[in-house]
Design a binder for these strands. Sequence first.
DNA 1: CGTACGTTCCACCAAGTGGTTGAATGTTTT
DNA 2: AAAACATTCAACCACTTGGTGGAACGTACG
Lengths: 118, 118
Amino acid sequence: MVERSPSVLDLTYAALADPTRRDILQRLRRAEARVTDIARPLPMSLNAVSKHIAVLERAGLVQREIRGRDHFLRAEPARLTEAERWIAEYTGFWERRADALAAHLETYPENPAAEGQA
Amino acid sequence: MVERSPSVLDLTYAALADPTRRDILQRLRRAEARVTDIARPLPMSLNAVSKHIAVLERAGLVQREIRGRDHFLRAEPARLTEAERWIAEYTGFWERRADALAAHLETYPENPAAEGQA
DNA sequence: CGTACGTTCCACCAAGTGGTTGAATGTTTT
DNA sequence: AAAACATTCAACCACTTGGTGGAACGTACG
């Protein structure tokens, strides 16, 4: 087998494919937290959570800062742009958006946003 | 174990996590195709491709129409909206967009788009 | 110091994945 | 009817995943 290492996109989508990990990301979106804090409300062992965090970290979706015995985690939302872009391009987001813009300009040919502003 | 059935989001992201399957989707975005057509350029057996297609189908990302002995597949891009929305909400897309809108309205208080349009 | 705490590492297990080959099923063609 | 074609099904294999429990390691605190 060729055994290629998985791409960023592979890691990102795989990380997002688990509800526990999406949960962890949502929690980290509000504020940074320690591993134990994240694990407390979850219905599984601390070890399992530690593994989930490792998956998110490998995908670059969270970053870890070790302060003493605590590992503080924070979300890295920028790492999702590639995943977002893939879907957007696939679904033709930009084409639809271009159509909408064209329609808009046709309706409002003198929209000030289309001209240099004061 | 609780053995919950995987959510749509789970299935969607899991389906997208494999480069072969993203490849298949891109190919189907242009035009419908038969299983064999999809398999031909791919470096694996027809059976393997058939399995990948099954994964995409289970996630609702492709739909199958059987005509005689041929199975024609077509992409179902609408099924990605939920996945797209999750990322967008997570990354704060709408908040950023709201900020941009507010700034825009402040700059152009009489922008026709802000009033009921004809 | 010794003990508690926070986290990971290790070994294990059941289930899933991504691939293979070969057989089976159904359809079209000759 | 027989052969070729399109596709899936079934069994198998190596590897990964998501969970467990216990040991280990480093840090903080009495």
